[in-house]
Design a protein around this nucleic acid. Structure first.
Lengths: 143, 143
DNA sequence: TGTCGTTGTAACGATTAGTGTTACGACCAG
DNA sequence: CTGGTCGTAACACTAATCGTTACAACGACA
């Protein structure tokens, strides 16, 4: 699939801001975060803008401004981040509507949708088990 | 949409072949299956070729030939189909290696990989719960 | 043996999502 | 004012999927 790194980068950015703030800084710039992620600052700003809409981060403008967390790392799960970046469904149905005059073509959509709903629920359940605090703990343990 | 309809189409094709065979036919052509799926026969042949590699389907060549199931619908789970079409990972890490001199950049990869492994395991567990026989039953119930 | 229906597969273009980059306006602390 | 930072549009590039055309390979059957 189009392997998606958006959740990875979003978690990276939030964790970075959290650690930076714990070390006494008020805000983090997209430039600093981009250096850690090894990408372009605009990519970070675009992603953080989505996280801001979800109430996870906030930004200030002007000189000496930047990004900060709205909620503490302990209260943010990977599911919160996942939903904030609004990923599409994992699986899709047919591009073109299958033949409705065929028994299989007519009934396969609802049948697969039921399964896919269960799969996505399981996926969300797993993501909800991990907070960014957990992620930060793992990160620091690796050092 | 990055969302992938390959699993849907693969399950559709196998279910169609299974039902067709139960109605007394030896083989199903990619043309027939494509009509039900509402796509091009080549798309079906490409997908079924992958399922053949996984031992789920087989084909004959020549006039009056086509596709058949190797295993019964009851013994094929959606996980079997999912693995046969070899989808990439659901989530990807960073495209470019993050800054290894940054604590977060250095440790975030393994931390996220551990979570992603759990998520994929949960996803596979859900797909393993449903067989193509279950799918066919749902399909016929909808009619 | 020839024909014809079917699979096998390469090749190409279209579409889509994500990513990286440049550019420039908006904003604000000092 | 000035300079640093965000906000966002615009565009090119990559990669995966999908649809389509084309043609070779194969084999049942007359």
């Amino acid at each position: 699939m189009s392997a998606n790194s958006r959740l990875t980068v979003a978690a990276h950015a939030l964790t970075w801001i959290g650690l930076y703030q714990r070390r006494g800084h008020e805000v983090a710039t997209s430039e600093q975060i981009a250096t850690s992620v090894n990408t372009n600052p605009v990519v970070i700003r675009r992603l953080l803008a989505e996280l801001r809409k979800a109430g996870l981060a906030d930004s200030q403008r002007g000189a000496g401004a930047g990004w900060m967390l709205v909620r503490d790392l302990e209260t943010i799960t990977l599911l919160d981040v996942y939903q904030a970046i609004d990923p599409g469904p994992i699986f899709a149905l047919h591009r073109a509507t299958p033949n409705p005059e065929c028994v299989v073509g007519n009934g396969i959509g609802p049948a697969m949708t039921a399964v896919y709903d269960e799969v996505e629920a399981a996926l969300r359940g797993e993501l909800a088990k991990t907070t960014l605090e957990d992620v930060l703990r793992d990160v620091l343990k690796a050092a």
